Computed example of a mutant assay.
Amino acid sequence: MAGWLLWGDVDAAKLPKVSLHDHLDGGLRPATVFELAQDAGVEVAATDGESLGAWFRGQADSGSLVEYLKTFAVTTGVMQTAPNLERVAREFVEDLADDGVLYGEVRWAPEQHLERGLTLDGAVEAVQRGLDTGVERVQRSGRSIRVGQLVTAMRHADRGLEIAELAVRHRDRGVVGFDIAGAEAGFPPSRHRVAFDYLAEQHVPATVHAGEADGLDSIRSALFDGRALRIGHGVRLAEDLVVEREDDDRSYVTVGRLARWIRDRQIALELSPSSNLQTGAIAAWGDSLEDHPFDLLYQLGFRVTVNTDNRLMSGTSLSKELALLTEAFDYDLDDLLTFQLNAAESAFLPLEDREALADRITSGFDAID
Rank of each mutant, 00 (worst) to 15 (best):
G53L: 06
W55P: 08
W55H: 15
F56A: 12
F56W: 11
F56E: 06
F56T: 06
R57D: 12
A60S: 15
D61G: 12
S62C: 14
S62L: 14
G63C: 11
S64H: 13
L65W: 11
E67P: 00
Y68K: 07
L69A: 07
L69R: 04
L69I: 14
K70R: 15
T71W: 13
T71C: 15
V74R: 00
T75G: 08
G77K: 04
G77C: 11
M79I: 09
M79W: 09
T81K: 11
T81L: 05
T81W: 06
A82H: 00
A82M: 04
A82C: 06
N84M: 10
N84Y: 08
N84P: 09
L85Q: 04
E86K: 10
R87W: 03
R87A: 02
A89M: 02
R90I: 02
R90M: 01
R90K: 12
E91K: 12
E91A: 11
E91T: 10
E91M: 11
F92T: 06
F92L: 13
V93T: 01
E94T: 11
E94H: 07
L96A: 09
L96P: 04
A97W: 02
D98N: 11
D98V: 08
D99G: 09
D99Y: 05
V101Y: 08
L102Y: 01
G104A: 12
E105F: 01
E105H: 06
E105V: 08
V106Q: 00
R107S: 07
A109S: 11
A109R: 08
A109P: 06
P110N: 05
